[in-house]
Nucleic acid binder design. Structure first.
Lengths: 109, 109
DNA sequence: CCAAATAATCGTTAATCTACGATAAACGAT
DNA sequence: ATCGTTTATCGTAGATTAACGATTATTTGG
């Protein structure tokens, strides 16, 4: 979507924050990727192969999902020999939580 | 993605919650839809036409985005004469926030 | 050095998404 | 009853996504 001058202030987020937030949500917008995040939260760190065992998906597909999550900044991966070890990017996740709370809290239910 | 018996417990969420959460994230995975939610949070309720003025998108496109958000349960829309009035589905948003917090909190940073 | 293991990338296919204009449907006002 | 307003839906084109197998690159162990 391209912005133009008709859009002074779309809401509570800046444009950058809107883009960032949408990108993070998009990365979480697939069950496999939600499971990966959940799994990483549970076990802290793991290799790509562990996730391939966990999910009913081909290795190449899992690798793609990991790439999406990494590009959105939600996880980090570092090469350890022939393997790659993934873990959550905790500061980034924290920022995501804060944005969700900003979006939703102080709503009177 | 289809699940199979190799997947006993994907993480902290049930399968249903995983699906629900992914669907809500997916709905928020576009800047226009984030802006709509933000706008609705700011002004509480508005008509489709207001959002068409706000965003640099055609009316039919805005209507589609509203449909996505409604299908994900994040907003509600009710017909008022020839117009449709949209507002946040606050209980649903609250659930979303709780899920995000469950996903990310109690991480030691 | 070579073989095995691991993960990323490439190429491809099918499906979904995003955007638009055009049209249809619903309603209020004249 | 008809017209104008508003919104939803339809049809479509182009881009992106999700999935796979095959291939490649890298590294470790023998």
């Amino acid at each position: 979507m391209k912005y133009n001058s008709k859009m002074p202030s779309p809401g509570l987020f800046s444009k950058d924050d809107t883009e960032l937030f949408a990108a993070m949500c998009k990365a979480l917008g697939h069950p496999a990727r939600v499971m990966i995040i959940n799994y990483l939260k549970k076990i802290d760190r793991c290799f790509c192969g562990d996730i391939v065992e966990l999910l009913p998906l081909a290795q190449s597909t899992v690798s793609q999902h990991l790439k999406s999550l990494k590009q959105a900044g939600l996880i980090k991966g570092e090469v350890e020999g022939p393997k790659t070890c993934y873990c959550l990017d905790k500061p980034r996740l924290e920022k995501f939580i804060l944005m969700v709370e900003a979006l939703g809290r102080s709503i009177q239910p």
